[in-house]
Amino acid sequence: MAIKRIGTQTIKFVNPPLLISTASIVGPKEGEGPLGEYFDKVLSDDLFQEVSWEKAESKMTKEAISLATNKAQLKIPDIQYLLGGDLLNQLIATTYAARDLQIPFLGLYGACSTMAESLALGGILIDGGFADRVVAATSSHFSSAERQFRFPLELGNQRPLTAQWTVTGAGAVILSEKGKGPTITHVTTGKVLDYGIADASNMGAAMAPAAASTIVSHFSDTGFKPEDYDLIITGDLGIYGGEIAIELVRNRGLDIMKNYSDCGIEIFNGKKQDTHAGGSGCGCSAVVFCGYLYKKLVEKKYRKILLVSTGALFSPLSLQQGESIPSIAHAVTIECN
């Protein structure tokens, strides 16, 4: 009997896992953005002294994990599981980091939803009594993602207004069964939804239904009301995707307009930085959570937030074959105590 389940898609932890430390590393552009001061490390060169962007991304993940471990006054061998992923084929950024770190590793792919997915599974491992300390880490890199999913950097093409900018950054969170820090209390796992959007430069619109569905399920499963949260923040819907999600949630009788935001909107100054609809990528919700939101939770500026990381589960191949973009969103409730 699954005593920790409530409703159709939600888990309520009995011994809520604590988030005892976080670390975030970002590229130069993210460092210049509105949240620049909250990140632990801003790279001056997004190659990070490596020879390829893939290696740079992997190094960011590795450093973020090491940094978060140090901050918690732990050593790498104290960590019992590494949960995480990235956007690259076969998760090379995370697996190559895991090769060096030698932490027992479970690779996850949820596209840009991977941060919430890792946090959720990390929490489950701890509350289930399978681990004492777990690290959840995800990353993305503009240049490595761009060449895999879109166009070469130097190609003189135009980006549509709905296009988003992949965040260069890695975030890591240490989850522990004891210690100090905010806790994860609830997890709502999303379903894969597809409303037939096939435009890879309008991913916000492709992901909005998944985000809305997970948010609605979360409230109906838990009995919470939108007002219970200081902030309901989606991963990377961007300006237009966010607008659509609010509308879809409103159609189901919930008003999240007042306390809604999106990591992709927060991380860049769209007008000044020419990022169009906002940031995206696994790194987007990871660094916004690990850098900005976590600090606000520790300072008790926010008491309770709902992080809804959103992922577009397509590949360049599926798009070329004319498939539309399926997407997913996972929600985690994080409370400070």
Partner: peptide, 29 residues
């Protein structure tokens, strides 16, 4: 060239210089 292209769109894609751009950019990358 990509900075010209960002504003000019087809204005720099359609001329033969854009054809050269489409060859060099992936090769370099």
């Amino acid at each position: 060239y990509d900075r010209i292209g960002k504003r000019a769109g087809a204005g720099s894609i359609v001329p033969i210089t854009g054809f050269a751009n489409s060859i060099v950019s992936p090769a370099m990358e």
